[in-house]
Structures are given as structure tokens and as C-alpha cells.
Amino acid sequence: MSFISIENVFFSYDNIEDGKPVVNAVDGVSLSVEKGEFVAVIGHNGCGKSTLAKHLNAMLLPDSGKVYVDGDDTCDEEKTWDIRAKVGLVLQNPDNQLVASVVEEDVAFGPENLGVDPREIRERVDAALKAVGMYEYRLHAPYKLSGGQKQRIAIAGILAIQPQCIVLDEPTAMLDPLGREEVLSTLLRLNREMGMTVVLITHYMDEAVPADRVVVMDSGKVLLQGTPREVFSQVELLKKHRLDVPQAAELGFRLRGFGVPFDRVPLDEQECAEMLLEVLQ
């Protein structure tokens, strides 16, 4: 069985008693995440991707359907805290998830809640801060850090819980390009070097390129999934659903439209440049 498996989940924020037609934020989604995988979930605002993220650690429970984390049903109240310790959720606004006035005390918040031995908390905090490259800032006040740094502290705060999977709900939406780059490279490193399972929810297509698998959501449903190359090759389908593709893919697609003999769609600038060079020679 997969590490996380979502089976035909429906969820709605609407109140059925209101009498208005119910709109499902998540409308029959089935999806699985394997251990060690880097999955990117993309889609534009309101497509249900954030709602889906909150289902992965039992913050929201499905109206119908099931979500299993490491074999445990998220609806099982006795397992709620086990599940949250296994699947850490990082939210969008870095300011609103840091709870302490000193960086290292904030990172310690999670393990403190789990009742971990003080000496081990210290070790976990140091290791988590080193993993996100913020160890030198451990005594700083969070509000003096940049957005990217704050978001890395938030990731460290989740790492200190020692989860098996990190889910990030648009972690870069409020950051500048530099901060986005910091956060993304941190995530890639965690996935590649530490084998951390990462589910990255984003509306920046470029961020989905390095993922192992891309899941495209639209109006609460899974529209498309596959490797980044498979997904971003379907430029026309994505465009029909008002979704962007990475800039390099867009360029490749348009050039192909003008008769440039590209055999595939380039995913990043480097690949695009190489392909152009090949064609020109």
C-alpha cells in the first residue's frame, strides 16, 4: 500500500442545510503518494488543492471517501496525532505559523508538543535548522528575517517533528523570487539527500518541473498526472483549462507551431537552449 492513499474523496465547505447547491471543493479525488517521492500538485486558485492538502494530515476529514496515511484512516480520532506527526503541513503565510519569538524556540515547538525528551529536542532542533541552512540564525527574532528565511524556519519546525512526509501548501506564494528559490532548493535537497517524501502544492508551474510526478487539479478534480515531461507536453489541454506551462515549454510549443523540428517539449531554460542549438546546427 502507498504511504498516503486518497480514495475517491469528496469534500465541501458549504452547509447542506443552507439549501443552496453544494459545491465540492474536492470532487472525487483518488491519488497516492509513495515514500520518498516528490509530488507537485498544481492548479489555479480555488481548484481545491489547498483543501486536499489539509486532508493529508487530518486537519480536514472527507465528507465521503477515505484518506489513509501509512495504513491509518484519517477519520480515526485516536490516530489523529500519530498522523500529524507523520505528515507535516507547512502553510502559505510564513508569519502566521511561527509561534515563538526566537527561531530555535519556534523550531522546538513541535517536538515539545510531542513530549520529546529535552536533550533530544535540542538535537532535533539543531539538525532541523542545519537541514534548512538556518543554523546561524537560531537566536534571531523571526520578524527580522526575510520571507524566504521565515518559510525555511517553518519547514525546520516541521522537520523537528521528524515526519515521514512534508506537505507544503503554496509555501512560496508570498515570497519574492529569491525567497522562492531558497525554499525550493531546500525542498529538493531534503528530498534528494534525506529521502523525505515531499508534496508541494503550488501555482507556479516552474516549481513543478523538478518533481518526480506532477498532479494537475481543476475544479476539485484531478485533470492530469504523470512525469513533468508527460504533463507539460500537453500544452493545449493545460491551456484549455487556463493553466500555464513553464516558460521554456511555452516557447518550445510555440516554436514547434512555427515548424521548428523539436522532438519534445523543453522543461527548463537549459534544455531549451540546448535543443535550439541542436536545431540551429
Binding site: 494530515n57 486537519m59 496525532w81 500529524r84 506527526a85 507535516g88 503541513l89 502553510l91 502566521n96 505559523q97 509561534v99 515547538f109 513541535g110 508538543n113 510531542l114 517553518a154 519546525g157 516541521i158 517533528i161
Partner: peptide
């Protein structure tokens, strides 16, 4: 929400 996510 963030506090609950961190098992508070």
C-alpha cells in the same frame, strides 16, 4: 491551524 499541524 499551524499550531494544530504541529501537534499542539
Amino acid at each position: 491551524t499551524a499550531m494544530e499541524c504541529r501537534c499542539y
